Amino acid sequence: MHSWGSMHGVCVCAVILLLQGALAGESESLDSGAPHVNQVLCWSPKYPVAVLCAWSLQPEPLQPTSVTATYRLGLSGKKMTCKVGPGPLPGPLPITAPGPLAGLLSGWCEIEHLELFVLQTYIVSVSVENHTGQYSFILEHIVKPDPPLKVVVTPGSRRQLSVKWAPPPSWPDPTLFPLKYRVQYTQEGHAPRTLGPYERCEVVLRGLRPRSSYSIRVSAQDFLDNGHPSDWSLPISAHTT
């Protein structure tokens, strides 16, 4: 497994590159013209209910291609089917997804009913023809909420901005599995400042410069620091009085 960023750092998801090799019992090189699994990425925007896995194929298939996705808990676990989803990915692909995956998303599947707080790793295998890509994870390590929504910024009294937002709707139960939030604001022409974490979905930014333009965005993270923070919400512009 190749870790793309620190497991407990700012971001981001890990990537498993294709386990490339000769076909079983053969030593010839693989046909470079046939599609193969280039990268596999898994993350959990719906913790603890489900995990999404996505992959890219290279070269891009010119006709419909059969892809099989399976998962198991540990090397000896029972192999289960990760049902390949129809249509587009149900939610945003993490901004930090590597280039080939972000540029050419070939398919995705969703895994439900995973066990919580187990030390064994889940192993996801994505196969097309004779090529297989794999991704291994511990559920709590790949938690990554979607960004908060409905960010609203309102000028308050002099040198203040009131910021409110809503939890990402994909997060199943903010009551039993709460989120915490960080708010980043940037004055035009200055470096950004990040505040938090906050447990509530609102904060008042104080001590700002009067009659100045600011850009504000919000990030969410599992309250117990499982996994990684979400990507930042779309920036909202506001002006102090």
Rank of each mutant, 00 (worst) to 15 (best):
P172E: 15
S162M: 14
T175P: 00
S136C: 09
H190P: 00
T68S: 05
I123M: 14
K150V: 02
V126R: 13
L73N: 04
L104E: 10
Q187N: 02
T194F: 01
L208A: 10
W4L: 01
L19C: 14
S27D: 05
N226D: 03
E129Q: 04
H141L: 02
C82M: 08
Q63M: 06
V203T: 15
K78G: 09
Q187L: 08
G196H: 07
P98R: 02
R200A: 11
K79T: 15
L105I: 01
G227V: 03
L93W: 04
D222N: 14
P168E: 14
S233T: 14
S66E: 04
F177W: 15
D222K: 02
L114I: 08
A220E: 03
Y71S: 07
N38Y: 12
S125C: 04
Q63T: 11
P178V: 15
D231Q: 00
P148Q: 14
S162L: 11
V84S: 12
S127M: 06
E110N: 10
G156N: 10
C53F: 10
K164Q: 14
Q20P: 03
L73I: 08
W171P: 00
W43Q: 00
E110W: 08
A102C: 05
T186M: 08
I216K: 02
P48H: 08
W55F: 10
P174V: 15
Y135W: 09
R206Q: 13
S29E: 15
F117P: 03
P168Q: 15
G133N: 10
Y47F: 12
P59V: 01
E112F: 07
W43F: 06
Y185E: 05
Y181G: 07
Y181T: 09
S106K: 03
F137I: 07
I16P: 06
D31G: 08
L18K: 12
S6V: 02
G103W: 05
H141R: 10
Y198H: 11
D146N: 12
A191T: 14
A22D: 06
E28M: 04
S44Q: 01
R158I: 10
V151H: 05
S215C: 01
P94N: 01
V204Q: 14
L139V: 11
E26V: 08
G156Y: 08
Y185F: 14
G33N: 06
H131N: 07
A50V: 05
V12F: 11
A50Y: 09
P94E: 03
V10A: 05
V143Y: 05
A191V: 12
H8G: 08
Q134K: 02
